[in-house]
Design a protein around this nucleic acid. Structure first.
Length: 801
DNA sequence: TTAGGATTTG
């Protein structure tokens, strides 16, 4: 990567009071009473022509001079606009060589040709220096300056007011681009703009002086490293970094040498943007600045840095959960604060949860009841899912200020196993004093994707779950731990072999991800890559309903919706005229409670000889969710219906039209045209009806929705990173998507599989390889056109699950 | 000014 990515500075744009939105690299300014209308950015330093020679580093340097000659705008052989001007260095008038050729390409050439006049003063930055092939003939400098918008060059044109019309000034007077310095080009004593990927950080903490302090170590594709020490009295003005791998853009950071290394420190006017570093995540800057430049080019830089980071840096995978804690280690926890209490002068208690259960007995810190803040009922209900974290010394002040209910990331919590006579042994959670290894507490905003995911999960955790966890037997607990050991064995095996195998195309050779990213779609490729991360992390969220007719995907409705529909239909009493027909027998009764609810059950007759109940299909009117579930345990199929004047009919298609075993079958609202229930009689008339859901759906005019796993895999292979979708009914995981929501064994199996494919907390080097077959395809909507990738003909290796 | 990465020992 070159020394200059963009050019310009902020001082000029700010001085004009214009927004940054329409930034252009060519800018016309006035000279008023012999002075520049607005000052140049302070980090730019003037350089005389005599210092220009091959190997000169143009970072943060500008050349100033007078336009003494300009050539007509022409086009090069490839159609690129080209404009050449000659600049004279007025400060160096006596020198023999005091003029230099400037070659301007592309749109910048066109823009300059329009407004530039002989006699204008130019300031140019972000140029490339090259040997001038015409130096001998024209007697000018033996170097030339090459400039283009693509190279990030910037040109300020200072005109005398009379030479440029007001309209031209208005159209060209916009903020210039910024110069971003790669981390291997930093020089002592400069103030620069830069991009970097967070390799390490200390969340803002209270310093011993007057300010908050945050320490951030950055890396970039130049492979250089920069540690920045940032101070600000306002917590909000420090970068909003939430995890290693986030990407930052710093403006006006001062570079100094400290202990033989470059160091970044806050300077006046320091500003930062922070971005999620995940490939494919939305590019949304986090900042406290009200006004900042951010355009397509910046977006592109972020996307490039993400891809570079994904395949070149070892950043840990999914964060730890309480269910995955091990004794004697340090980890970061994303959690919600539900209680806090003063313990003594140097320590403070935080009670937090993340919806999962710590597999070990945990320490409860004794505190005086009157010191405990938080909702008492909630603290009681969640007592088995909450852990006590004792924070010490410098963290106490920040901990005290935290709001109950807020979402936190607590960095570098220490788990300590302590034996005691009372309960054998338990785990203690400590946030020790100091800020080593980034130890500290960060408050996450509700908009943070990890918080959104956590909130969804916490909402799905029913309080009853914590009760059943309480009764988990020691045998079950033991098996959990055995699984961890088994997992380790699996992981060793997976270092060499692939954890996935192809079910076809074995003869094809692998293609690097970089090649795939640069290829046109549609195509198919065999790849060998690592699963860096995946979404959703909560695996139950990966299950959707798919209509193969209209290709729509919908969420699986939850039990509450079904309950509502059932309650609604129970308002209509069964119509006795529809009872006992040629193909079903009916029974009806009234509940004894106050509601006096009427329930009717219609048993479909396969033939005169009544079969076993487990082969029977029944239709029910007026039943509750609980009653339906009870019936599914005994009978093969249950169809909830309601009476109309002349037939039974299916309920709203938001409800399942059929229940079989533990599975609810849904119909597509768009593609189904429900037929009268009467049509079921054709199946009933068969000698031995199998009551297959597909067959039932067909005769009832229902387009059956299929359960499917939809996941997004971020794959890396050292050459690039790409997101590939997994769309799987059963083949990849060898688990039917239709059964996973109701089968805890299968859920556990799937979680184990994902833990093997993408072991939590592992570095990139330690992730196993996956062999996959992927295809690229086009996705177009009104605004954008993208290429997407999908995994197919791939399955998890047999010995992995 | 502060901290300047590189785990506490409660």
């Amino acid at each position: 990567m070159g020394a200059v990515r963009g050019a310009g500075g902020s001082g000029v744009g700010g001085g004009c009071g214009r927004t940054d939105k329409a930034a252009m690299p060519v800018r016309v300014l006035k000279i008023i009473e012999g002075k520049f209308e607005t000052p140049l950015p302070s980090h730019l330093q003037k350089e005389g022509l005599k210092h220009l020679q091959e190997g000169f580093d143009p970072t943060n340097k500008y050349i100033q001079g007078l336009v003494i000659l300009s050539y007509p705008l022409t086009k090069l052989g490839d159609g690129t606009d080209f404009f050449k001007v000659v600049l004279q260095d007025l400060d160096d008038f006596c020198s023999r060589i005091n003029s230099i050729n400037i070659l301007i390409y592309g749109k910048m050439a066109e823009d300059c040709a329009k407004v530039m006049r002989n006699g204008d003063t130019l300031v140019v930055a972000g140029f490339k220096l090259a040997k001038s092939p015409t130096a001998r003939e024209d007697g000018r400098h033996n170097c030339q300056l090459e400039m283009s918008e693509e190279a990030g060059s910037v040109i300020y044109i200072y005109t005398k007011p009379k030479t440029t019309s007001a309209s031209e000034t208005a159209s060209m007077s916009v903020a210039p681009k910024y110069v971003y310095t790669p981390l291997d080009h930093l020089k002592d004593g400069t103030i620069v703009n830069l991009y970097g990927i967070v390799k390490f950080f200390k969340p803002p903490y209270v310093s011993k002086g007057t300010d908050y302090c945050s320490v951030v170590t950055l890396v970039d594709p130049s492979n250089a490293k920069l540690t920045c020490t940032l101070f600000n009295g306002n917590l909000n003005s420090l970068p909003k970094i939430y995890k290693v791998g986030d990407i930052v853009r710093f403006h006006r950071i001062k570079i100094r040498e400290y202990n033989g290394q470059m160091q970044g420190v806050t300077s006046a006017g320091f500003a930062s943007l922070t971005f999620d570093g995940t490939v494919g995540a939305p590019v949304v800057p986090r900042t406290s600045s009200k006004v900042f430049t951010f355009m397509d080019e910046e977006q592109k830089i972020i996307e490039e840095l993400r891809v570079w980071a994904a395949s070149n840096l070892s950043i840990c995978g999914p964060a730890a959960k309480l269910s995955g804690v091990q004794p004697m280690l340090f980890f970061d926890l994303t959690c919600q604060l539900i209680g806090k209490a003063k313990v003594d002068g140097s320590s403070f208690l935080l009670k937090v949860w993340d919806g999962t259960k710590c597999p070990y007995p945990t320490w409860k810190v004794p505190v005086e009841a009157r010191e405990l803040e938080g909702e008492k009922l909630l603290l009681h209900q969640l007592r088995n899912l909450t852990v006590d974290i004792l924070v010490y010394d410098n963290h106490v002040q920040l901990a005290k200020s935290l709001k109950i209910g807020s979402f936190l990331r607590i960095y570098s919590i220490h788990t300590k196993q302590v034996s005691s006579d009372k309960d054998g042994s338990h785990i203690e959670f400590h946030l020790h004093g100091g800020t080593c290894y980034g130890r500290g507490i960060g408050v996450l905003p509700e908009s943070n994707p990890d918080v959104k995911e956590l909130k969804d999960f916490l909402e799905s955790v029913e309080l009853a779950d914590s009760q059943s966890m309480e009764s988990m037997s020691s045998v079950e607990l033991d098996s959990t731990f055995n699984n961890i050991t088994d997992l380790e064995l699996h992981l060793q095996r997976c270092q060499e072999l692939s954890v996935t195998v192809l079910t076809d195309h074995q003869d094809l050779s692998n293609t690097e991800l970089k090649t795939i990213l640069n290829s046109t779609a549609p195509q198919q490729f065999r790849i060998r890559a690592k699963l860096r991360t995946y979404k959703p992390q909560k695996l139950h969220q990966s299950i959707k309903l798919h209509c193969s007719k209209c290709n729509s995907l919908t969420e699986v409705p939850d039990g509450d919706d079904f309950d509502c529909i059932l309650q609604g239909s129970a308002m209509t009493s069964p119509n006795p005229e529809l009872h006992n027909t040629s193909w079903y027998d009916s029974v009806m009764w009234t509940t004894q409670d106050q509601k006096q609810r009427k329930i009717a059950i219609h048993f479909v007759k396969p033939d005169e000889m009544l079969k076993e109940p487990e082969d029977t299909l029944l239709m029910i009117e007026g039943g509750t969710l609980k009653e339906l579930w009870r019936l599914t345990k005994r009978f093969k199929c249950v169809i909830p219906v309601r009476s109309t004047e002349d037939d039974l009919e299916l309920l709203d298609l938001s409800a399942p039209f059929l229940l079989q075993g533990n599975t609810k079958y849904y119909g597509c609202k768009q593609c189904s045209t429900p037929k009268p229930i009467q049509h079921l009689s054709s199946i009933a008339a068969e000698e031995q009806p199998s009551w297959e859901p597909t067959e039932i759906a067909q005769v009832l005019g229902i387009e059956l929705l299929q359960y499917v796993f939809i996941m997004k895999f971020t794959l890396v292979d050292g050459t690039g990173a790409l997101n590939a979708y997994l769309f799987d009914y059963e083949k990849f995981f060898q688990i039917p998507a239709s059964e996973i929501l109701t089968n805890s064994f299968l859920q556990q199996k799937m979680q184990m599989t994902m833990n093997t494919l993408c072991p939590p907390g592992r570095k990139l080097d330690d992730l196993p390889w996956l062999e996959c077959f992927i295809k690229s395809y086009h996705v177009r909507d009104e605004m954008k056109h993208r290429v997407c990738y999908q995994i197919f003909d791939t399955t998890v290796a047999e010995d992995v699950v």
